[in-house]
Simulated assay, not measured.
Amino acid sequence: MPTAVITGASAGLGEEFARQLAGRGADLVLVARSAAPLERLAAELRDEHGVAVDVITADLVVADDLQRIVDRIADPEHPIDLLVNNAGFGLPLHFADNDIDDEVRHLRIHVEAPMRLMHAALRSMRGRGGRIINVASVAGFISRSTYSACKQWLISFSRWANAEYAADGVTVTALCPGFTHTTFHERMGLAPGHEGIPAIGWLNAPDVVREGLRDAARGKAVSVPSLRYKVVVALTKVLPAPLTARAARRGRV
């Protein structure tokens, strides 16, 4: 059976990746900071699908915790076939109003952690094949504070790596959803509906994950779920950057 490592697996898109991959018969290594939700999810998936599920409680902004995940990915005795870099969080204020230490943690979870995990995965997968899915965002196509900057890096790196390591049988896909019904915004301290986004602008997590897995299987470097967000991304290429930046202030994706 293939084995997948999923970070940020205790809720939201990470949990949905776990459910869909377990449904396809994949063994899982679930990573998150909260042990109890991970253990509950792992027990449920073992019972429902008969797959092996390992749980690793880790905070990826802590160097020792991150190294434990790197070591698991690099373990030649238990190779992995899929890495889903999903862990992350948003900050509720503008850059100058946020605590700088929070901004540094934000940068480490969205850039340093996936970079280190991808490095380990690529070294393990070269020659035998594998897939990496980096959960980015439509925000990566719009200029908006450090969240957008981090996602821009993830998209750019995924595009390069997907081409660079194709000959080794490895695909790297940046999954770029728009606003998605998860707990992401609540964890930022924003009340439901605070973002000012109409209902048509919201996606469902199962659809996002399903399309992301499909595009990864097709070897696509960038996956933008739903036609409406494909249109949004196309518009960002022709509209002035100040205009798209003003529009982005309505909410976070």
Score class of each variant (00 low, 15 high):
residue 5 V to G: 01
residue 6 I to N: 05
residue 7 T to I: 09
residue 12 G to V: 09
residue 16 E to D: 15
residue 16 E to P: 04
residue 17 F to C: 12
residue 18 A to T: 02
residue 23 G to T: 15
residue 23 G to D: 13
residue 25 G to D: 09
residue 25 G to S: 10
residue 32 A to C: 10
residue 33 R to T: 05
residue 33 R to A: 03
residue 34 S to E: 13
residue 40 R to S: 11
residue 42 A to H: 08
residue 43 A to S: 14
residue 45 L to Q: 11
residue 46 R to F: 07
residue 48 E to K: 14
residue 57 T to E: 15
residue 59 D to V: 06
residue 65 D to L: 12
residue 79 P to T: 05
residue 83 L to Q: 10
residue 84 V to S: 02
residue 88 G to M: 02
residue 89 F to K: 05
residue 91 L to T: 06
residue 92 P to C: 05
residue 93 L to V: 01
residue 94 H to E: 12
residue 97 D to K: 07
residue 99 D to S: 11
residue 100 I to R: 14
residue 103 E to Q: 14
residue 103 E to Y: 12
residue 106 H to I: 05
residue 106 H to W: 04
residue 110 H to A: 14
residue 111 V to H: 06
residue 111 V to C: 14
residue 112 E to D: 12
residue 112 E to S: 11
residue 112 E to I: 10
residue 114 P to L: 03
residue 122 L to V: 15
residue 123 R to Q: 10
residue 132 I to F: 01
residue 135 V to L: 07
residue 136 A to T: 04
residue 138 V to S: 03
residue 139 A to K: 02
residue 140 G to K: 07
residue 141 F to A: 03
residue 143 S to F: 05
residue 144 R to V: 02
residue 145 S to L: 08
residue 151 K to A: 09
residue 151 K to I: 07
residue 162 N to K: 10
residue 163 A to D: 11
residue 163 A to H: 10
residue 168 D to N: 03
residue 168 D to V: 03
residue 170 V to M: 04
residue 174 A to E: 02
residue 174 A to Y: 01
residue 179 F to N: 11
residue 184 F to I: 05
residue 185 H to D: 14
residue 189 G to T: 10
residue 189 G to C: 09
residue 197 I to V: 15
residue 207 D to E: 15
residue 209 V to R: 00
residue 212 G to D: 03
residue 216 A to P: 07
residue 219 G to Y: 08
residue 219 G to K: 03
residue 220 K to A: 09
residue 223 S to W: 12
residue 225 P to D: 00
residue 231 V to M: 11
residue 237 K to V: 00
residue 238 V to R: 04
residue 238 V to S: 08
residue 246 R to G: 07
residue 249 R to T: 14
residue 252 R to P: 07
residue 253 V to W: 06
